[in-house]
Nucleic acid binder design. Structure first.
Lengths: 237, 237
DNA sequence: AGGCATAAATTTACGACGTAAACAAAATAA
DNA sequence: TTATTTTGTTTACGTCGTAAATTTATGCCT
């Protein structure tokens, strides 16, 4: 009887939740949910353990450390970004499509999106996305060196825009939107412009910026092709 | 004599450094230096205290908490960004100039630059910079709503580019540049392009992206003016 | 000069963090 | 079965931000 009691006590180690066995997938999903719910600053291995009904240290059987877990969370988000196939339409429209797909992450995962500023894309889906994005450009016959300039302009705009929207959102949440009269008087341009900084204009701002950059893409191929023709004497396709 | 000994012992509390009295300025300068030297992740109030030969808690007489101190560090960096006066040249060139001035921060303060992704510009120099940047656009007769779209496109590109350069740098530092053959085979586009991702091309990439966005600025005013003329029948200046 | 409010710095303490190390239990292979 | 590997827990260490209480220094008023 003593033995039995002890056994029950020990067995109580695991008692809740349907999918008991810990796995990388289950951990990453829970981490993403937790980060979205409470923000990446409040995230900790201990809290994630509590969410999964295990001790924090159990997570270290699946991820060597917290940063690698965060990398997996980043990659989990990137899995949702879709690069349309070639028959979707012109390359510019395919580029626009995956840009919008990426930008959608900031609305789906507002808490976790800032991880893009702290961790890199060096896991499966991140690398695949990068490869597809570059392929979309290279397939137009653009040289790698120019492709880098184009892609990074776009990618940096996308990352910056996501982060900025989240910052403006917390501005609104913390009452930063209601500016002091004194602030308005000393910063007239900022005051004139502030009505349009709110979330209501986020989509408009994003699409406008994307248009600017994609116009740059088109102009780039135009002059790039012009140069190639001059050299080879061939016709544009 | 006992009293004197005790006094000396107590007085030893402060003994080093030339500018002994703590001040917001001295604290912020030391914090910026420390963050640049060791990275913002390694930064702590205790280490900053050690650097300034005081206890961590002494800093709380000048900053209510760590985040407000980081805000001040951000503002300290922004103080260095210069917006040229109107007689510097055309508004596009003035915009280019402050963009380059901002981008220079990523080289001057590689450790502290990522703070721009975590803290906002709501202190003195940050607000002043925002105001001047918007004024540069508004002074061309552009409406506030369009000005927001233009400025945020530029600002988000600038923030994203800085962060991305730093990430690529740590990639190089941690040997991420030397890609596996397997990785190259499964990601051919990425492999083709990777020679141009290194720091040697940072300036070229940045200037190219800036050109794209400033071309968008010029195109925006062109069509904006065209609309205004149609409405008012007036001539362009 | 002496006393007194105010400001500046220290000390101590609390709860949370990431994670190393040692251990126990469970699943799997032999 | 027993041996091995995997998975989880426990305990512990050093670090973090910062609240509270305390001591020390500074400037002001007679």
């Amino acid at each position: 009887m003593q033995a039995m009691t002890k056994e029950l006590v020990k067995k109580r180690r695991r008692a809740a939740g349907p999918a008991m066995p810990l796995s990388r997938e289950r951990i990453v999903d829970a981490a993403l949910a937790l980060i979205d719910a409470r923000g990446h600053e409040a995230f900790s291995m201990r809290k994630l353990g509590a969410e999964l009904d295990c001790e924090a240290m159990a997570l270290y059987n699946h991820f060597a450390n917290k940063n690698l877990l965060l990398d997996a969370v980043v990659d989990r988000m990137l899995k949702k970004v879709v690069v349309p196939p070639r028959d979707f339409g012109p390359w510019i429209e395919r580029t626009r499509a995956y840009s919008q797909s990426f930008h959608a992450l900031v609305r789906i995962h507002p808490g976790a999106f800032p991880l893009f500023a702290m961790r890199r894309f060096h896991e499966k889906h991140g690398l695949a996305l990068l490869d597809e994005a570059f392929a979309t450009i290279l397939d137009e016959g653009i040289e790698p060196r120019l492709a880098v300039k184009l892609y990074r302009t776009l990618a940096n705009f996308l990352a910056g825009t996501g982060l900025n929207e989240l910052m403006l959102l917390t501005d609104v949440a913390t009452g930063g939107a209601t500016r002091t009269t004194a602030e308005n008087e000393s910063h007239p341009a900022l005051a004139a412009v502030s009505p349009y900084l709110g979330p209501a204009y986020f989509d408009e701002v994003f699409e406008y910026g994307l248009d600017i950059i994609l116009a740059g893409f088109e102009e780039a191929v135009r002059s790039h092709r012009a140069k190639s023709e001059k050299k080879t004497g061939s016709q544009p396709k």
